[in-house]
Structures are given as C-alpha cells and as structure tokens.
C-alpha cells in the first residue's frame, strides 16, 4: 500500500516576472514503511520536491497524495493538520524553536495534537537520543549534533507515518553524522515509519532501500539501492 503517490507533478516559480520551471512531470509512489533517498546536484529540485511531498508548498499542477489525502485540494490549515497527524521532519539546520527548551521543543507536536502525557513521551525520547540530562537546555546551549538529536526526538514524538529529512547530516561532522544516521534508522525501524531523505551524501543514500535521482527538475533514475550503486559507477566512468 502506497503512503505517498506523486502524479504528473509540475512546479514553477515566478521570479521578476519570468516563469522558472523547477520540477517537470514527476511521477513516483512510495510504499508504507519504505526508506527512500532523493539525490541530485544543487538546483536539481530536491528540496522543492520534498516541500511538495510534505505539504509545505502547493504544486503548479499534478497530484500529491499523502496518507490517502490529495494535498492539492486542501488549504494551508488542512495541510497543517495532516502534517501534525502523519508527518515528521528533520532539517539540515535543525530548526528548533530557540525560545523553547529541548523538552518543550519535543512536546510541541504532541501538544498541538492535543495528546496527553506529552512530557513523559518527550522525556523517554530524550533518553532514547541520550539527552535526558539536557532537557531544560535551550537550543543555543546545545552543540549541532545535540540539536539534531533533539530534532530527531521531536520528529518521532508524534509517531508519524512518514518522516521527511532534508540533508539531516549536512551540518555535522562524520562521527556525529554516524550517530545521527544510526539513531534515525533505529527509530525508523522501531516505529515502522516511512523515511524520505533528501541528501548529497551517497553513503547515507545507500543505507535506504531506494534512490530517486533528480537533474534539472526531472527524475533521471529511480532504482533499488544495488542498481543505483552501479548507475553511479557508470556515470562516473
């Protein structure tokens, strides 16, 4: 059963009165519980595609169906409800709310959803990411790796059906990246979440089951992980 279905997706931006095509004729489906990477060079349209898939933006044409809901027909508030209910996010620059403590940042999605016992769940998650003793610290008092761990805990706090990660290790060193990747895949497995990662990091991409490659706003390949490694080698040759 597919959790995300993209059909004939187009996205254009208007810049200084001119139309700029960012994505053209994108089609794919992702099965529930799958792990998928979207890779491509800068300006290939990866982040735009992620934004559209997660309901953060509207497509110029085509359909995005997330968790059985067609996003095109929904307004921003309805999409916000979908995000809160089914979607988790991890960002390259962590995007923690600077005025809230680590614990409060993790509690926010649950409180938005009106769930009870948010504090206990958040503390358990903080313990899971190894930051239980830092729960009262603000983002500015945490290192980059620690901030991303809080961000991971927040992403999983609402038990999302699908998790979107935008360059989750892009701002981190190799050792910290390794820790974050392991945590992300472990939590993903434990909760049975679908994982969609946008990344430049081929090492990270290889850890997913499927890689979709973008170039100039088109999908140039969509392969299982083994085939992808061969395509990359072919391209490099």
């Amino acid at each position: 059963m597919s959790i995300l279905r993209i059909d004939k997706l187009h996205k254009e931006y208007n810049s200084s009165g001119k139309s700029l095509r960012v994505l053209q004729d994108i089609n794919f489906e992702i099965e529930e519980g799958a792990t998928v990477s979207i890779v491509g060079s800068s300006g290939s349209g990866k982040t735009t595609l992620l934004g559209l898939c997660a309901g953060l933006d509207r497509a110029s044409s085509g359909t995005v169906e997330l968790c059985g809901q067609t996003l095109n027909s929904l307004n921003e508030d309805q999409r916000a409800e979908i995000r809160n209910q089914y979607v988790g996010f991890i960002f390259q620059n962590f995007q923690l709310i600077p005025t809230l403590s680590a614990l409060e940042n993790i509690m926010i999605p649950m409180e938005l959803h009106g769930k009870s016992g948010a504090k206990n769940v958040a503390m358990n998650l903080l313990e899971r990411v190894g930051l239980a003793d830092r729960h009262h610290h603000y983002p500015s008092q945490l290192s980059g790796g620690e901030q991303q761990r809080v961000s991971l805990a927040r992403a999983f706090s609402n038990e999302p059906r699908i998790l979107f990660a935008d360059e989750p290790t892009g701002n981190l060193d190799d050792d910290t990246s390794g820790t974050i990747e392991k945590l992300m895949f472990d939590l993903n497995r434990e909760q049975g979440t679908t994982l969609v990662i946008v990344t430049h990091d081929l090492e990270l991409a290889r850890q997913t089951q499927r890689i979709i490659r973008l170039k100039g706003g088109h999908i140039i390949s969509d392969e299982k992980t083994g085939q992808t490694q061969q395509s990359i080698v072919d391209e490099q040759v």
Binding site: D77, P109, L112
Partner: peptide, 16 residues
C-alpha cells in the same frame, strides 16, 4: 519568522 515557520511546519494552523 523562523519560529513561526517551524510551528507551522509541525502542524500549527495559521490562526493558532
């Protein structure tokens, strides 16, 4: 703005 965008991203409605 960035905090508001995060709230919105996490599913908070515009009016909220």
């Amino acid at each position: 703005i960035s905090s508001i965008a995060i709230f919105r991203c996490l599913g908070m409605k515009g009016t909220d």
